[in-house]
């Protein structure tokens, strides 16, 4: 631990990585609470996998057409928002075919991304970075963008808490009270898509779903209200990112995978403890 803290003062890239992890934790904590409570994990997974098409397309445009300003992160943002709107629309208007249509979009996004990257020099390195993340590649420009995205998600998620809570808990009642429930549902998916882009830099697209569910799932074992779940999720996500980065540095392992392993292990242990406590409580009463 001390070694890691010393390295933090010596190497800028480690500081950027830690700052990125903490920023992403803010929006991850807020969004994962809504995603888990409203059971939107499948939709979030589909958005995450569609993002590869945007990353791959932007990288292709940079290398092949020389459009250097088109950072893959911008491509990811555009595709994530587009995917959120399409998936949201399908979920609202084509419920009977929802799973097959969303499954198709999920696969098409991945396939499109792989094809773009295959046609781009440096294919293997790029693909691995996008799929499994490389937090050590973060630079100040990426951090500013992450700060903006995290701030936006935080403001929306906390500022519109009563409306989002109502839409997640009882959509029909919210509609009867005059709320535009479709707007808030699509907004929630758009916030999820922004968080997916933030997290993709940290743990990659394949493992994004873990950080979108595990912090809130862990928090659900401790808090009874959504507000409490949000707070605990933010803290848990920040601790997972910090410990993942620390352990990956000390053991020289991929940071994204280590972060997810830490999160998964903590969640499973907490679940076990919670079950044991419940059993003891019910035996005692």
């Amino acid at each position: 631990m001390l070694e890691f803290l010393q390295a933090l003062t010596q190497y800028n890239f480690l500081g950027y990585a830690l700052a990125g992890g903490l920023l992403a934790s803010l929006s991850c904590g807020v969004v994962s609470a809504y995603v888990v409570s409203r059971r939107l994990t499948y939709l979030a997974g589909a958005i995450a996998h569609c993002v590869l098409a945007g990353l791959g397309g932007a990288r292709y445009a940079q290398v092949r057409w020389g459009i250097l300003w088109l950072d893959p992160l911008y491509g990811a943002l555009l595709t994530a928002l587009l995917a959120a709107l399409i998936i949201g629309w399908v979920s609202l208007r084509a419920r009977q075919r929802e799973d097959s249509i969303i499954g198709s979009l999920w696969a098409l996004g991945m396939a499109g991304g792989v094809l773009f990257l295959a046609a781009t020099p440096g294919y293997e390195t790029d693909l691995m970075n996008y799929l499994f993340g490389n937090i050590l590649l973060l630079d100040p420009a990426s951090l500013w963008l992450m700060l903006g995205l995290a701030g936006l998600v935080l403001i929306l998620g906390l500022g519109l808490y009563p409306e989002l809570l109502a839409v997640c808990a009882d959509e029909e009642f919210a509609r009867l009270r005059g709320l535009n429930t479709e707007f808030y549902y699509l907004l929630l998916l758009a916030m999820t898509s922004l968080t997916v882009v933030l997290l993709s830099s940290l743990v990659g697209l394949v493992l994004v779903i873990a950080l979108l569910t595990l912090p809130a799932a862990l928090a659900s074992l401790m808090a009874r209200r959504l507000r409490g779940i949000i707070v605990i999720s933010i803290i848990a996500c920040a601790l997972f990112n910090f410990s993942g980065l620390c352990l990956s540095y000390l053991w020289d392992l991929p940071s994204g995978a280590v972060t997810v392993m830490v999160a998964g292990t903590v969640y499973l242990c907490a679940l076990l403890v919670s079950k044991i406590l419940k059993t003891r409580h019910s035996d005692g009463s």
Partner: peptide, 26 residues
């Protein structure tokens, strides 16, 4: 309005005071 069936997930993290506060929406 009180519907015949309320579609609230029993595990949803919503306490009774929060549920009732939802009535003030709008």
């Amino acid at each position: 309005y009180l519907p015949q069936q309320v579609n609230i997930d029993p595990d949803f993290p919503l306490t009774i005071p929060e549920l009732v506060t939802m009535g003030c929406l709008g």
